[in-house]
């Protein structure tokens, strides 16, 4: 499933990239711990997190992730938003909790 379908099905708001959201999502990942994501994040992941600082963008780019979903209506801090735009990293936002976002993705058949 690609990011655009996920955005529509989960009713997400796109915060950054205006690129076509056609990257394929291979796996869902939930974490707020940077060390954890550095160790276990993978290419093609959609990363669900509460964190909004610059490291989120840096790590998502480093791991070549499909995108990031911020929960509970969170927004990136300005420096992070800037970086994400520059590098074309799709960052989306949901008003729902991590539990609901991850749950709905799982229901769509995204593996974990």
């Amino acid at each position: 499933m690609n990011l655009d379908e996920i955005k529509n099905k989960l009713n997400l708001t796109l915060l950054t990239s205006s690129n076509p959201l056609n990257s394929e999502v291979s796996r869902g990942y939930v974490s707020d711990l940077m060390s954890d994501v550095i160790a276990h994040g993978k290419e093609g992941d959609i990363w669900i997190t509460y964190q909004t600082h610059l490291n989120v963008v840096a790590i998502a780019l480093m791991k070549n992730m499909a995108g990031v979903i911020l929960i509970q209506g969170r927004e990136l801090i300005p420096a992070a938003a800037e970086k994400a735009k520059e590098e074309g990293l799709p960052v989306l936002s949901s008003s729902k909790s991590a539990f609901e976002v991850a749950g709905e993705l799982y229901q769509l058949g995204i593996p974990g």
Binding site: Y29, V30, K96, F99, A102, Q107, G112
Partner: peptide, 18 residues
Amino acid sequence: EFSTFQVTGKLFAAGLQG
């Protein structure tokens, strides 16, 4: 052993709320 995502998915599927 399951990841946070997998745990969440299973609990969501089992009808728990978040």
